[in-house]
Structure formats: C-alpha cells, structure tokens
Simulated scan of single mutants.
Amino acid sequence: MMINILGGGPQSLLPDLKQYDSTGCKWLGVDRGVFTLLNAGIQPHYAFGDFDSVSDDEWDKIEREVGNLIKVKPEKDETDMELALNWALLQKPQQVNLFGATGGRLDHFFGNVQILLKPVLENLETHVEIIDEQNHLFAKGPGSYSISRRPDRTYISFIPISPSVEGLTLDGFKYPLSDRNISLGSTLCISNELVGEHGTFSFSEGILLVVSSRD
C-alpha cells in the first residue's frame, strides 16, 4: 500500500499529483493541502490539521467534502505534517510520499526533513520520501541499497544527517567511493551522477540523506 500526504507548501513546487494517484493509494490532506487536493480533483481519505491557513469558505468546503476529518488545536507538540505521517506509519504501508513539504517557511522545511528520520530511528520498513517538482529526498540507515536513474533527476547527492557516516561506498556512479567516512557538514558527495541505469550505495554506521534533483 502507498500513502500520499499533501501539505500546505507552495503549489508552484508541486509535481503533477495525478501521476501519483494510482489505484489503491490513499491520500491524506494536511491543513491547506486538503483544499489543494479537492481543487485538483483528488478525494482525500483523511484530513489533518488545525486549518489556520484556510478561509471560512474553504473550511466549509472541506467540512462538506471530506468524511474523515481530524481537526486539532493550534497549540500542540507536533506539526500537522508529523501528525499525518504518524497516522500513516501506523497503517504499515510500503511507502509514504510527502508533497507540499518544501518551500515557504524554512523551519517547516527542516522539520519535514527531520520527520524523514522516523522510519529509520524506529526500524520501520516503510520508505518515506519528500517529493517536489525538482527533488526527491529520503533517509536511510546502515545497509546496502540499489538506486535507479530517474529520467527527470540528473543529480544524486548523499548528505550525512548524523555526526558521521561510516564506510560509505558508491558503485555505478560518475564519482565512485570506497569505504569512506563522511562527517556531518561534508559536501564531498554533493552532485554525483549515475553512469548507467542503476547504482548501489552502502555504509555501516550513521544516517544518510539521499537527494535526487535537477537544475
């Protein structure tokens, strides 16, 4: 099962949401993202948020058209996006895609990057990605992974998001790497590229943020 979550980030940064609207996937709307989904002709299965970013008319539309509405107080310990992701992870899907999670306020963006760590820190099998019109982001813990070329994403960067990443090896890349230790703050692995259709990356300790992007 796949779950797609749409937050309230700028619509100019959203990809074509219809291409992710596959049979059997569930859509969750977060705050203003609920209204964006409805306007895109996609029916949210659930809606989360304090809805402080929608007008009274927009809220009336959300109340009329969304059956499973979870409204929370603005004063809370988690962001609306984290509340939606927590619910999604409890469903044990294979993948969760986060849209509308970039652009706008930088504190919200960095918060959304942080919640990518949830499945890694909790040893969950669910793969969580942030997707916008220009980037795909996900986090991984120690292991060996295959990565495929995305036709619209030329560059692949590997960014430490823990104090260090130990034993990083990159195979199938323009700039290969063998058993290197990368410290937090290093830009060594920014803007790499696959030389074929597939490559692998592996490491023994730490947490790695993987970013596929284009100019």
Rank of each mutant, 00 (worst) to 15 (best):
Q94H: 08
A47Y: 08
G111E: 07
L106P: 08
S144Y: 08
P93F: 13
D77L: 14
L37V: 13
K92T: 15
F138G: 00
E82K: 09
V113A: 08
P93N: 10
E65F: 11
N39Y: 01
S55P: 06
L116E: 02
S146K: 09
P119R: 03
Y145M: 12
L85W: 09
I131F: 00
W59D: 03
K71D: 05
L98R: 05
Q114M: 11
I115E: 02
P74E: 07
G100V: 01
D52T: 11
D60V: 15
L85R: 06
P44N: 10
D31G: 04
D77F: 13
E129M: 07
I115L: 13
A47C: 09
I70L: 15
V96I: 12
R105T: 14
G100D: 02
D77W: 13
G49L: 12
M81N: 04
F48K: 13
H127Y: 03
G67W: 07
F35K: 10
N97V: 01
I62N: 00
L89A: 11
Q134S: 09
D31Q: 02
D60C: 10
T36P: 00
I130K: 04
N39W: 00
G141R: 10
R64M: 07
V54S: 13
P142M: 08
L83A: 11
S53P: 05
A101Q: 07
L85N: 05
I70H: 15
G100H: 02
L85D: 03
E125M: 11
L124R: 14
T79W: 06
F48P: 08
P74W: 11
W87Q: 11
N123C: 05
G100N: 06
R149M: 05
D56Y: 09
L116I: 07
Q43K: 13
Q91L: 12
I115A: 02
D132A: 01
L117H: 05
Y145W: 14
D31T: 00
Q95Y: 01
R32P: 01
R149H: 11
I131N: 00
L98K: 05
F99I: 00
G103H: 00
V120R: 12
D77E: 15
A40H: 11
E58V: 00
L137E: 07
I115R: 01
Q94I: 02
D52W: 03
K73S: 14
R105Y: 11
Q95A: 06
Y145E: 12
Q43V: 15
K71H: 12
D31R: 02
F48Q: 14
P142T: 12
